[in-house]
Design a binder for these strands. Structure first.
Length: 497
RNA sequence: GGUUGGGUGGCCGAGUGGCUAGGCACAGGUCUGCAAAACCUGCUACGGCGGUUCGAAUCCGCUCUCAACCUCCA
């Protein structure tokens, strides 16, 4: 079954058939983190969503250039202090030390979630020249003005000359923005509250500073994405992604900068992931409604009753569509943990199934082929992982029934079995990016396996002699050691956890 | 106040004019020495009020309500 890839374009608020600018190639830009503190769980959700999108595009045969930036300058706090500088001041480190520390942490966390690294991971501080050039171009085009060493984007001038397009991504209108703009501090230099800085003069105590035609300063927050996406993907490219909260003002201003500098709008498809909530509310450090990935991994938090591994969390994320808010609750995580285990056990069972029938495929075999094809088709529909997963679970119950004998293996021919193994494996591991946890324990695993063979052999002997006191004692002791024994019709099985 | 998107069974979460989403939980059953697992069956819902339609959770209007954004945020 082959279907066309459709995706929801935030620009048009519609699902559209995806057609790349250059056949066979995809340029994908995703707004990365500002590296001034530990990576937030919400970041993990967004980047995992785009990881699956990246993986799926590759599966579809596209040669993808995936660019995800690191913002290490320009992002100011409410007080107007650069986030990097603030982190450095508090920890008594060089700003670049702060950036490196949290970049390293970010990479480690991405690896824990089994997210593939992007092809290019440009840093804002590594592209000061490109940003200065873009400011110059925007100035030359008459969409910005300089005041006291700072350069501001002139939103109203831009809007007047661009068909009132400013705000089209987020649905905002300038007059409404003006009417509602609140009293903001230190914005006297701006001609209008909607204008935004593309270059800022550095104050005397500002550490991060570069020479520019306007004196020493630093680039505005939104500029790096425009400059770097243009540099690596071109003035027009295919897909731009990011969190929903970046739609306004970040992405809106990015578009304005792109149009203002080259007359073209950058990305043709905008994809936005939705927010991660906890217990129905946005995660927020200030009111205690927050949890770190690390706390989830260890279970060390008042918000959870158990520990949840990165793959359980990934599975949990797969159960929600990327454009929906996702509510993190302990009960939902418990459900995900069990669901993930059931899925992985079925995957292991699939490997042990042996076709017994002839070349003809029975009903069960056909149902399995259909379910698998439908799972893939769901991915074509705006990367609908929850629906694809639902189809996968239709396969899971067939696999379990075949293994348990409730369904006959004579109903499934060898080629179907092989096709399901290949197709499901690709979907689960290459596209969903799941992996079997604990399976890579290495040499210790092999030793344990041999010991377990011995123990289960002894236990089987005890059971054959109806020495149930002994067999139960063995099972209880193994349980206490974290090993679960399950008696099946073809002998006992065991698993860790 | 404005913008954007929601309100679905015990919980999470898809769907979007007629056809069982799925996961978890719960109850009954099959299997089993017991247990666990697995399988089968059941619980069959769409915020409220109107309207369109042969038919609406799905479309339209009104209303209540939640979240995010508008101020740093993935």
């Amino acid at each position: 079954m082959t279907t066309e890839l459709k995706l929801h374009n935030s620009l048009t608020r519609q699902k559209e058939v995806f057609e790349p600018l250059n056949a066979g190639y995809v340029g994908l830009y995703v707004c990365g983190p500002t590296v001034y503190s530990d990576v937030h769980l919400g970041n993990c959700r967004t980047f995992t969503s785009f990881d699956i999108i990246y993986r799926y595009l590759q599966y579809k045969g596209y040669k993808v250039r995936y660019v995800r930036n690191i913002t290490d300058v320009g992002h100011l706090t409410d007080e107007g202090e650069d986030k990097m500088s603030k982190g450095a001041r508090l920890a008594q480190l060089e700003p670049m030390e702060v950036a490196q520390k949290y970049t390293n942490g970010f990479h480690a966390m991405m690896a824990a979630f089994n997210n593939l690294p992007p092809n290019i991971e440009p840093r804002a501080t590594g592209h000061i020249i490109e940003q200065i050039e873009m400011v110059q171009t925007i100035l030359a085009n008459g969409f910005a003005y300089e005041v006291n060493g700072s350069v501001y984007f002139d939103v109203e001038a831009f809007n007047a000359r661009q068909n009132n397009d400013y705000g089209k991504l987020s649905g905002r209108r300038i007059d409404e923005l003006l009417a509602e703009s609140r009293e903001l501090k230190s914005q006297d230099e701006k001609r209008s509250p909607t204008d935004f800085a593309i270059w800022m003069k550095a104050g005397e105590d500002h550490i991060l500073r570069w020479n520019s035609p306007w004196g020493e300063g630093f680039p505005g927050w939104h500029l790096e994405c425009s400059a770097m996406s243009t540099k690596y993907l071109g003035e027009a490219f295919d897909i731009h992604g990011g969190g929903n909260d970046l739609k306004f003002p970040h992405h809106e201003n990015e578009i304005a900068q792109n149009v203002g500098s080259c007359g073209c709008g950058g990305a043709r498809y905008w994809l936005h992931t939705n927010m991660l909530l906890m217990n129905g509310r946005k995660m927020s450090k200030s009111d205690g409604n927050t949890i770190t990935p690390q706390q989830l991994f260890t279970g060390d938090s008042e918000h959870v009753s158990d520990s949840y591994s990165p793959m359980v969390l990934r599975f949990f994320m797969l159960q929600t569509h990327y454009r929906s808010t996702m509510d993190l609750t302990d009960a939902a995580l418990q459900a995900a943990k069990k669901g993930y285990q059931r899925l992985m056990e079925a995957w292991a069972s699939l490997g042990s199934l042996q076709a017994t029938g002839g070349a003809q495929n029975g009903t069960v075999g056909k149902e399995m082929q259909t379910a698998l094809a439908e799972a893939y088709a769901e991915m074509d529909d705006d990367f609908n992982t929850p629906k694809a997963l639902a189809k996968v679970f239709e396969l899971v119950s067939r696999i379990n029934a075949l293994k348990g004998g409730q369904l006959s293996l004579a109903e499934v021919n060898a080629s179907t079995l092989q096709a399901v193994r290949t197709g499901l494996g690709t979907l689960l591991f290459d596209i969903f990016g799941l992996k079997e946890e604990g399976a890579d324990a290495g040499a210790g695993q092999e030793t344990l396996s041999k010991v377990m063979d011995l123990v289960l052999d002894l236990r089987a002997q005890a059971r054959a002699e109806k020495n149930f006191a002994m067999s139960d004692k063995l099972r209880d002791a193994l349980n206490a050691a974290g090993i679960v024994v399950k008696d099946g019709k073809d002998g006992a099985e065991w698993s860790v956890g």
